[in-house]
Lab assay of single mutants.
Amino acid sequence: SKGEELFTGVVPILVELDGDVNGHKFSVSGEGEGDATYGKLTLKFICTTGKLPVPWPTLVTTLSYGVQCFSRYPDHMKQHDFFKSAMPEGYVQERTIFFKDDGNYKTRAEVKFEGDTLVNRIELKGIDFKEDGNILGHKLEYNYNSHNVYIMADKQKNGIKVNFKIRHNIEDGSVQLADHYQQNTPIGDGPVLLPDNHYLSTQSALSKDPNEKRDHMVLLEFVTAAGITHGMDELYK
């Protein structure tokens, strides 16, 4: 796709999030870079409003799984890469995230190029959380598991539907599940690639910047598309 050509090198990323969870309002600002050749993201996020009212790991899918245009699609799968094909005009990404036995996040993001920078601007609203639950009670460990993110075409809306389940580790050794339902639709009216069913395999590492006084998260992530085999004719070339 034409959009794919915008991702040949390292691309700067800007992320802006405004959130409200159970009436606790907050903002997060992030910057870093993405390299789609390797499916690599390096980002640093800062809570610009003081202390973040929710655990950082609960925002990873909104912040970095928010820029799935940096996923590495192998050559034989490039015609299934909706995310890059929607660029530079970008796409709207909407999600509902259900935390098992707790509340939910609803998010709406616009992901697009502004100049040479890929920008992810998000509004997040969280409701029905227990004040002493795993999320508002800050009981999650500061780490992140690997996940597969399942993608299918949504021809009606000229976009994709995505769903997956995140496993958050809790300090007591148990797990907090979070079910994600995602819809992506193009902002522009140019042609986009509608994929066959496949998935993104994601690995994320969270860390801290020892010199950063503000509440923050440093993230390194690798994302690769998989799940579609080479056609038989490919094998015999």
Rank of each mutant, 00 (worst) to 15 (best):
residue 7 F to H: 13
residue 63 L to M: 09
residue 109 A to S: 15
residue 104 N to H: 15
residue 54 V to G: 00
residue 165 K to M: 15
residue 36 A to S: 07
residue 75 D to N: 09
residue 22 N to D: 06
residue 172 D to A: 06
residue 35 D to N: 08
residue 46 I to N: 02
residue 137 G to W: 05
residue 61 T to P: 14
residue 3 G to A: 15
residue 148 N to H: 10
residue 3 G to D: 06
residue 75 D to G: 09
residue 139 K to V: 04
residue 188 G to C: 15
residue 134 N to S: 09
residue 110 E to G: 04
residue 128 D to V: 03
residue 171 E to K: 10
residue 131 E to G: 07
residue 190 G to S: 12
residue 206 L to M: 10
residue 101 D to H: 04
residue 209 D to G: 01
residue 194 L to V: 05
residue 184 N to Y: 01
residue 231 G to V: 15
residue 155 K to R: 13
residue 206 L to P: 03
residue 31 E to G: 08
residue 133 G to D: 05
residue 40 K to Q: 05
residue 68 Q to P: 03
residue 162 V to A: 15
residue 180 H to N: 04
residue 161 K to R: 11
residue 197 N to S: 14
residue 132 D to A: 04
residue 186 P to H: 04
residue 177 L to I: 15
residue 180 H to Y: 04
residue 216 H to D: 00
residue 178 A to S: 05
residue 99 F to Y: 05
residue 45 F to C: 09
residue 122 I to F: 00
residue 18 D to N: 14
residue 183 Q to L: 10
residue 228 I to T: 11
residue 131 E to A: 11
residue 192 V to G: 14
residue 213 K to Q: 04
residue 31 E to A: 06
residue 64 S to P: 00
residue 7 F to Y: 05
residue 98 F to Y: 11
residue 191 P to H: 10
residue 145 N to Y: 10
residue 48 T to I: 04
residue 82 F to Y: 07
residue 46 I to F: 06
residue 162 V to E: 15
residue 159 G to V: 05
residue 33 E to A: 11
residue 51 K to N: 09
residue 197 N to Y: 09
residue 67 V to A: 11
residue 139 K to Q: 09
residue 211 N to D: 12
residue 76 H to Y: 12
residue 61 T to I: 00
residue 204 S to C: 07
residue 223 V to A: 03
residue 136 L to Q: 04
residue 142 Y to D: 04
residue 206 L to Q: 02
residue 36 A to G: 10
residue 186 P to S: 13
residue 204 S to P: 01
residue 33 E to G: 05
residue 222 F to V: 11
residue 89 E to K: 04
residue 95 R to P: 00
residue 35 D to G: 02
residue 7 F to L: 07
residue 57 P to S: 08
residue 18 D to E: 15
residue 12 P to H: 02
residue 39 G to S: 02
residue 165 K to R: 13
residue 52 L to Q: 00
residue 185 T to A: 11
residue 108 R to S: 04
residue 214 R to C: 06
